[in-house]
């Protein structure tokens, strides 16, 4: 369990990135911090492994104040995955994955054997082990980044917009892969993104942040969708613009087998994968809310 207690961060140039922030991040769940750029979400994430120290307030991990821990030791037991993978370009894939275990003194053979297993875990072919990062595609590099994050079998995995720089199709792939991994491994994942769809897809707990890391709303995706706390949240998740309020388009329902859904602006958004009759009336908005909308991801890339 990670707890933020009254955490504030003011940078040297006077920017108040985080203003009196409190949050409990439960163990073995995925918590997604989501907000526009500059809202302080990355700063929050980097406080967990002391890449950033708070100006005031404190962060606990399992009841232990991390300010008392040695930063390097703390970081070595927390997995970290970032955008553009951050791999060491002059080291082979296998050495990148094994970086931290080797620093910790694990014998090379053992570390390499474990690294190869991790390549399996993240769905990479072992034949890539002896390549350099620059010889991999963007998606493959991100998988290596995840494997490196898992190398010391950490309880906590921090992910800073890890899929932000890959194309939408690869991103969807990586997201599914992460869901699968999380089901297997059950880590405490803290995930930062500006993409609300990604947040709803991956998060057990979603925290929507405004400027200064003020919490606009937190809860499960369903809770947030069902009851946006205010206009900011409604706007951010798109329901205010009618993007998520889907209705069955009565004009085309008779022509095919599927019910066609349209968004608030009347644009086709998807179909209902349910037997006819479950959704009784074309304007029953309460049921269609839970069908999340995946059509605008490309626009966030």
């Amino acid at each position: 369990m990670i707890e933020f207690h009254g955490v504030t961060k003011e940078f040297a140039d006077g920017t108040l990135a985080v203003d009196d922030f409190d949050l409990v991040i439960p163990s073995r769940k995925t918590t997604v911090l989501v907000g526009s750029s500059g809202c302080g979400k990355t700063t929050l994430l980097r406080m967990i492994n002391r890449m950033v120290d708070p100006t005031s307030g404190f962060v606990d991990i399992d009841g232990e104040d991390i300010a008392q821990l040695e930063p390097v030791k703390l970081r070595r037991r927390i997995g970290y995955v970032m955008q553009n993978s951050g791999l060491l370009p002059h080291r082979k894939v296998i050495d990148n994955v094994a970086t931290v275990p080797l620093l910790e003194g694990v014998p090379k053979r053992e570390a390499h054997a474990r690294a190869l297993e991790l390549l399996d875990t993240v769905g990479l072919d072992r034949s890539l082990a002896n390549r350099y990062p620059s010889q991999l595609s963007g998606g493959q590099q991100q998988r290596v980044g995840v494997a490196r994050g898992l190398a010391v079998d950490p309880n906590i995995l921090l992910m800073d917009e890890p899929f932000g720089a890959v194309d939408p199709i690869v991103r969807a792939d990586l997201q599914q892969e992460l869901i699968r991994l999380q089901q297997e491994l059950g880590k405490t994942v803290v995930f930062v993104t500006h993409d609300i769809d990604e947040a709803f897809l991956l998060g057990d707990q979603v925290v929507i942040l405004e400027i200064g890391a003020h919490i606009a709303q937190k809860g499960t995706p369903a809770e947030i969708l069902a009851n946006p706390a205010n206009d900011f949240v409604a706007n951010f998740i798109g329901s205010g613009r009618g993007k998520r309020r889907l209705t069955v388009d009565a004009s085309v329902t008779s022509s095919g087998d599927d019910l066609v859904l349209v968004d608030g602006a009347g644009y086709a958004a998807g179909v209902v994968d349910a037997p006819r009759g479950v959704i009784a009336r074309p304007d029953s908005g309460s049921k269609s809310r839970s069908i999340s909308n995946k059509t605008d991801q490309a626009g966030d890339a």
Binding site: M51, R75, R76, R77, Y80, M82, G86, L88, T99, R148
Partner: peptide, 9 residues
């Protein structure tokens, strides 16, 4: 790259 190296410990 440097930031990532620091972040992994």
């Amino acid at each position: 790259t440097v930031d990532a190296a620091r972040a992994i410990g």
